[in-house]
């Protein structure tokens, strides 16, 4: 990633120029006004590859103010290369404070997870989105999918779920599970596990979704209803590995499977590293954990 240098001399606050940020803010405001609707915006080149979440980075850049405390997570972890690079990018270009703590953060940029610790009013959660169009799977024509959203023709989403059940005996979609927002727009929540879907709905935080390559921004304002699609006889169900966290003993958090040695040893640990560390600090101990 490009070294942005000291933000005072080389770059505008948070890298993007003010005009670009205003354009992105207009798209965000429109997205908030029409929950779940994909707003086109003129995505800018960012000094990082598209796969790194340039859509989320641009949304974050447009939202940040100097007083913010930024947290960046990738699959729930604060310490992956991707998360560290994005966090460092904004430290350098915006000089904002950073944190790994969910409650302390004012803005969280995320890839593939919603934090376990409930979010609160005033916080902003920014998602990195690779493919914003939930209908793309069965209808590749952009003109047609736009029309389907406009006219609320969402039968095709259920065809996708039908195919899942026909092939696997159950709805096998476990990531990027589509939701209907406030009874109107069907939305792709980005590749979060469907375990996280219930947290999308009625969330006190502002949720913003940015797709860089596809140039789309959409949003869920606080307390917005987002219902996971399903069938009457195959209702939506969340799923996780049937274990407790081996480090902190949490029963209800989303787990990653980790290989511990080359003898096939493995353990299950919270994917949300901040949540797991917090529990251990409070004295919770899992099967393989050591007392703090």
């Amino acid at each position: 990633m490009l070294d942005a240098g000291s933000h005072a001399d080389a770059y505008n606050f948070a890298y993007l120029d003010e005009q670009t940020k205003r354009m992105i803010r207009r798209a965000i405001l429109k997205g908030i006004a029409v929950p779940g609707y994909q707003v086109p915006f003129a995505s800018r080149e960012m000094p990082m590859p598209y796969g790194w979440g340039t859509g989320g980075v641009q949304v974050t850049a447009a939202c940040l103010v100097p007083e913010d405390r930024l947290k960046v997570i990738d699959q729930g972890a604060d310490d992956t290369t991707n998360a560290v690079s994005i966090r460092r990018f904004f430290q350098r270009t915006a000089g904002v404070a950073v944190t790994e703590s969910t409650p302390e953060a004012t803005l969280i940029q995320t890839r593939h997870r919603i934090p376990e610790t409930p979010m609160t009013e005033g916080q902003i959660l920014v998602y990195q989105v690779p493919i914003p169009e939930p209908l793309r799977f069965l209808e590749p024509r952009e003109t047609e999918t736009r029309k389907m959203h406009e006219l609320e023709e969402y039968g095709l989403m259920h065809v996708k779920l039908y195919e899942d059940i026909a092939r696997h005996g159950q709805i096998a979609t476990s990531y990027a599970y589509p939701v209907k927002v406030e009874g109107r727009y069907v939305m792709d929540p980005s590749p979060i596990p469907k375990f996280d879907n219930p947290k999308l709905s009625g969330n006190p935080a502002i949720q913003l979704f940015g797709a860089g390559r596809e140039q789309r921004i959409y949003a869920l304002p606080p307390w917005t209803e987002a219902v996971s699609l399903d069938f009457d006889d195959h209702p939506f169900e969340t799923s996780k590995a049937p274990h407790d966290c081996d480090l902190c003993g949490a029963r209800a958090s989303y787990l990653d499977e980790v290989i511990t040695d080359d003898q096939g040893g493995r353990m299950f640990v919270c994917s949300d590293t901040d949540f797991c560390a917090g529990r251990r600090a409070e004295g919770h101990v899992g099967r393989l954990g050591e007392a703090a």
């Binding site: 023709e153 039968g155 095709l156 259920h158 065809v159 039908y162 059940i165 069938f231 009457d232 006889d233 195959h234």
Partner: peptide, 8 residues
């Protein structure tokens, strides 16, 4: 499904 059938 397009006209609202929701029972697989």
């Amino acid at each position: 499904m397009a006209v609202g059938a929701r029972h697989y």
